[in-house]
């Protein structure tokens, strides 16, 4: 009993260290999205290539797709762009770009310069649809399953490691679902 009295503070201290250490290694910028597990919020936005045409998420029902929020003014988007180009080459899923608070001119130039991995780009110039998606820092990427449910949200630039270790297995899993 006496022994426990001396060991207990040490145990509590160790637990606290573990707790704080885990807390330190978490990235506070990555706020879990309440949208994961919910259907995509509906919207109708003009396409970048031809603003007279529109895009809405229902067009992709039955397909696995990703929605990548980007902007020409966003430096993180430049970092992840080669990775997205790489993913586009593999033709695993439909890739939708979501041009957030940008001008069509800048966006078009940017894609011409760095390559266009997107099958279609929707433009949200005033950011109102982005608001419905809880966008708070570009780049952000949503992965949507065949039923139109958001299954995963990647916050921040996608790295090659994210792509090979997390995202490609996820895409394969989503594609295997009926």
């Amino acid at each position: 009993m006496l022994k426990l009295k001396f060991i207990l503070p040490f145990i509590i201290f160790s637990l606290l260290v573990v707790l704080l250490f885990v807390g330190l290694s978490n990235d506070p910028r990555k706020v879990p999205s309440p949208l994961v597990g919910k259907p995509t919020p509906g919207f109708e936005l003009p396409q970048l290539k031809d603003p007279s045409k529109s895009f809405n998420p229902d067009m992709l029902k039955g397909k696995v797709w990703l929605l990548n929020i980007w902007a020409s003014w966003c430096s993180g988007c430049r970092v992840e762009h080669p990775i997205l180009n790489e993913l586009a080459k593999r033709k695993m899923l439909t890739m939708v770009g979501f041009n957030y608070k940008d001008t069509n001119d800048d966006a078009t130039k940017w894609l011409a310069q760095f390559g266009n991995p997107y099958d279609v780009v929707a433009t949200d110039q005033d950011g109102s649809v982005g608001f419905d998606y809880g966008v708070y820092g570009v780049p952000e990427t949503f992965f949507i399953d065949k039923k139109g449910i958001i299954r995963y949200k990647h916050i921040g630039p996608v790295s090659y490691k994210d792509l090979t270790e997390k995202l490609i297995p996820l895409i394969k899993q989503l594609k295997a679902e009926t």
Partner: peptide
Amino acid sequence: MVARYGDF
């Protein structure tokens, strides 16, 4: 707000 950004 919570529906879009969570409890945070």
